[in-house]
């Protein structure tokens, strides 16, 4: 995790020659991002977990881990690796699950309704928060009003693949996460390296789009929308099994995400 975090940390102190280098890297990064955005959907269709094999056909460490993963999870839903993948995947998977239970969805809806006031109280600019909030609620309302579960899920999928709406959902979750971090500063501040304040951190690492997520983002996002997530780590580390982390610890996860260095996808348990 944290790779992006170091990156950003490095940028703050850059001066002189390094800056030029940074700009070049940024330009290249933008180019790559553009290529990615043209080839990968924001949120993909359900695919069997075993489809991961194709990516690692020559890599035994990974193939073993895919086998382990396939024993626990049936499907995977890929997301576009644009730095927003955690927020997009988490938001999507959470709403998708809530669509299964009308009660839980309504509860979630009510909490969401009151969230704008909380953000404005915390000092977020009312005018723009309102803009994101309105779209967020519009989406939730649209989904709530669809009686058939499967139709609602299809609608969710369509919405999350429309760049405008999808990004608005991401922004609002970023704002909620930032709000959570600022509300519980005392607790979260010990997770921040260096001498940045929580507010700085939120302005630099949480609220801007395309900024990747770290453990701290996930903790705060879970607390903000009252959900538990299991992150399954798959990397070249030793062992045949993927490591699992439940956030917050001890809570039964409702959303399952696959983490491969730098990227999150959605997982569906067997």
């Amino acid at each position: 995790m944290g790779d992006k975090g170091e990156n950003a940390g490095g940028c703050t102190m850059n001066n002189n020659g390094n800056q030029n280098q940074d700009e070049l890297i940024l330009a290249q990064q933008r180019q790559i991002e553009k290529e990615i955005s043209e080839s990968v959907p924001l949120v993909g269709d359900l695919e069997p977990v075993t489809s991961l094999d194709k990516e690692y056909s020559t890599d035994n460490v990974y193939l073993e881990k895919v086998k382990d993963l396939a024993s626990k999870y049936k499907h995977i839903r890929r997301t576009r690796p644009d730095g927003n993948c955690f927020f997009r995947a988490f938001s999507y998977a959470n709403i998708e699950r809530l669509l299964e239970s009308q009660n839980e969805f309504n509860e979630f809806y009510q909490v969401a309704e009151s969230s704008k006031a909380i953000l404005v109280d915390l000092g977020f600019p009312q005018f723009t928060v309102e803009d994101f909030y309105d779209t967020y609620m519009e989406v939730l309302k649209r989904l709530r009003d669809i009686d058939n579960k499967e139709d609602a899920k299809r609608e969710l999928h369509t919405i999350f693949n429309e760049q405008g709406y999808s990004d608005y959902m991401v922004v609002y979750l970023r704002l909620l996460t930032s709000g959570q971090l600022q509300k519980d500063q005392d607790f979260y501040s010990c997770f921040i390296e260096g001498d940045r304040t929580i507010t700085d951190f939120c302005h630099q690492e949480v609220e801007p789009m395309y900024k990747e997520s770290d453990h701290i983002h996930i903790m705060a996002a879970c607390a903000a929308i009252n959900a538990g997530v299991r992150v399954v780590y798959m990397d070249r580390g030793t062992g045949k099994n993927c490591t699992e982390h439940d956030i917050p610890e001890g809570r039964t996860p409702t959303v399952h995400l696959l983490y491969r260095p730098g990227h999150y996808d959605i997982l569906y348990p067997r």
């Binding site: 940024l26 600019p125 005018f127 723009t128 630099q204 609220e207 801007p208």
Partner: peptide, 18 residues
């Protein structure tokens, strides 16, 4: 951008007024 940061630190919650 936020002082000392790249343009990437623009926040969607800023506006033309900001």
């Amino acid at each position: 951008s936020i002082s000392g940061h790249h343009p990437e630190s623009w926040q969607p919650s800023w506006s033309i007024r900001t």
